[in-house]
Structures are given as C-alpha cells and as structure tokens.
Simulated scan of single mutants.
Amino acid sequence: MGLWRAAKRLFHQATIGDQRYRFLFQPGPADEVVAIDCETTGLDVARDDIITIAAVKIRGDRILASERFQAILRPDARMEAEAIKVHHVFEREVEEKGRLIYKVLPELLHFIGARPLVGYYLDFDIAMLDKYVLPFIGIELPNRRIEVSSLYDERKYGDAPPGTTVDLSFNAILKDLGIPRLAQHDALNDALMTAMMYVALRDLKARGVRIPRPRSRPSVQPGGA
C-alpha cells in the first residue's frame, strides 16, 4: 500500500461517521480477498450509476463461488440504449428487481468486510461505489486494492525490453492464462473471471514463472547477406 493510501486509511479510521462499520478496519480472515465487479450506465463517475454489483470470495487458491454477492440496482440515471445492449439488463428488469443502493450497501459492506478487493481496472468500480459509500458511512472504502492487470503486466512484461507492445486487455489476460471466457459485461461472470485471473497469476508468481511473449523478429540490416 502506498504512503498516500496508508495515510488516507488512517484518516478514514479516525473520522468514520457510522461507528457500526469500524469492522472495515479490523484484520480480515487470513488469506482471503474479494473479487468485485460493477456494471454501470456509463463511464462518467459523476453522472452515471451502478446497475449491477457482484462479488466473490477467494480463500488462498480457492474461489468460493458459493459465497457470492449479487444485486440489481435501481439507478437514478436513465439507462442508455448502448448500456442495455452491453449489459443485457433492461429497464423493466431494473424496475421490477432493482433495489435502492442504500438498501444494498449494508449487505455489500458486511460481505466484503476488511478483505482486500480484487478487480480489473478496479479504481473505476471503487470510485463508483465510493460515490455512495462516502455519504452513507462518512468515509470511502478503506480496503486494500489488488489490480489484476498490474499482476499480469508484471508477470508478462516486467522484464520486457523498451519498445515492447503491451496488451493488458481483459481478453488478452484470459487467453494467456487459459481461462474460459464467460459471457462478459455480466457482473457475476466478470467477477468470477477476475477471480480466476487472480488465482492463476498468484500461482505463477509463487512459482517464479513468467508468461511468455512472442519473440520479436530480428531486424534486417541494409546490405546484409
């Protein structure tokens, strides 16, 4: 954890508004993390809202698929046609099954607890959640963050020479790690695939194994034989 995040965590611990959520600062279960994913109405944190949230617990190298959290939310922002095409969550479904975010947050926070959070471009998901968590309990989520694209970058490109083309896309990570591609833009499926990425990358690092890169072709010098 960086110095800035560590200082921010101490500040939040001292200023938390709702004392019932002090458990977020207690030591979590040993060797447990939570893979989390949010699907949203768009990519503007200030303007858009969360449609669905899913989270899955991981203990060591085991994904506890039976210990998961799922929720459909009723967003304030109107769902655009493009968002519906991507997430396949229709306005009628949201109206019938969607719950208000402030009804869901207590369940989500108790599910997560103090465990580190794992995600793919996790900062965006956390920023979307913090938009609601901050006014709800008086602080932002204090949990340590583990970014799978950074873990992948280190295993594949950590020793790469300058000028190497870097691909940190979700599909590239799935392909290199041999993880089955579930239907994407579904919060639970994305959380499960992210969990599988984390477990695989953690294992590679523990064994000191790097992900191979295609060999670059040697350049042909002018006038060479």
Score class of each variant (00 low, 15 high):
Phe170Ser: 03
Tyr157Gln: 09
Ile146Asn: 02
Asp190Glu: 09
Cys38Thr: 15
Pro75Arg: 03
Lys205Pro: 01
Gly2His: 13
Leu168Cys: 02
Asp76Pro: 05
Ala191Gly: 04
Gly138Pro: 10
Ala172Ile: 01
Ile51Cys: 09
Pro214Lys: 00
Ser149Phe: 06
Lys205Gln: 04
Pro135Glu: 00
Arg144Cys: 08
Gly223Glu: 06
Arg217Ile: 14
Ile101Tyr: 03
Asp18Arg: 13
Gly163Cys: 09
Arg145Leu: 15
Pro162Tyr: 11
Ile112Cys: 10
Gly158Phe: 00
Ala46Pro: 06
Thr194Glu: 05
Asp153Glu: 10
Val148Arg: 05
Leu188Ser: 06
Asp130Met: 07
Glu107Gly: 09
Leu10Pro: 12
His185Cys: 11
Leu10Gly: 11
Phe25Tyr: 14
Lys85Arg: 14
Val220Met: 03
Tyr102Met: 04
Asp31Gly: 06
Gly17Ile: 06
Ile36Val: 15
Cys38Gln: 04
Leu168Pro: 01
Phe11Ala: 11
Arg5Trp: 15
Ala55Met: 03
Asp153Ser: 13
Gly223Gln: 03
Ala54Val: 13
Ala187Glu: 06
Arg99Lys: 15
Gln19Asn: 11
Ala187Leu: 11
Glu82Asp: 15
Pro116Ile: 10
Arg5Gln: 14
Ala46Gln: 14
Leu109Lys: 03
Gln19Cys: 07
Leu188Trp: 07
Asp203Asn: 09
Thr165Leu: 12
Ile50Ala: 12
His87Ser: 08
Glu32Cys: 14
Leu204Val: 00
Met1Arg: 12
Pro161Met: 05
Arg213Asp: 07
Leu168Gln: 02
Asp44Gln: 11
Gln221Gly: 09
Leu105Tyr: 08
Gly113Trp: 09
Leu151His: 07
Arg210Met: 00
Ser216Ala: 12
Arg207Met: 03
Leu204Ala: 02
Leu100Asn: 15
Tyr21Lys: 08
Ala6Arg: 15
Ile126Tyr: 04
Gly119Arg: 11
Thr194Gly: 05
Leu192Phe: 08
Gly223Asp: 11
Leu73Tyr: 00
Ala35Asp: 02
Leu177Tyr: 00
Gly119Asn: 10
Ala160Gln: 04
Ile53Lys: 01
Asp44His: 10
Ala172Arg: 01
Arg68Phe: 05
Ala54Asp: 06
Leu73Ile: 02
Glu107Pro: 03
Tyr121Thr: 02
Arg181Ser: 13
Pro135Leu: 01
Ile50Pro: 15
Val104Pro: 08
Arg155Val: 01
Val220Glu: 12
Pro162Ile: 06
Lys57Ile: 02
Arg213Gln: 13
Ala14Gly: 12
His185Met: 11
Glu95Gln: 15
Val56Phe: 07
Pro135Thr: 00
Tyr120Leu: 04
Thr164Met: 09
Asp49Gln: 13
Gly178Pro: 02
Tyr152Lys: 07
Val166Met: 04
Met1Gln: 11
Met196Tyr: 02
Thr194Ile: 07
Lys205Asn: 03
Glu39Tyr: 01
Glu107Ser: 14
Leu108Asn: 08
Ile58Leu: 10
Leu192Tyr: 06
Asp176His: 00
His185Thr: 05
Phe90Leu: 06
Leu43Lys: 11
Leu24Ile: 05
Asp203Lys: 14
Gly178His: 08
Ile126Ser: 02
Leu73Arg: 01
Ala114Met: 09
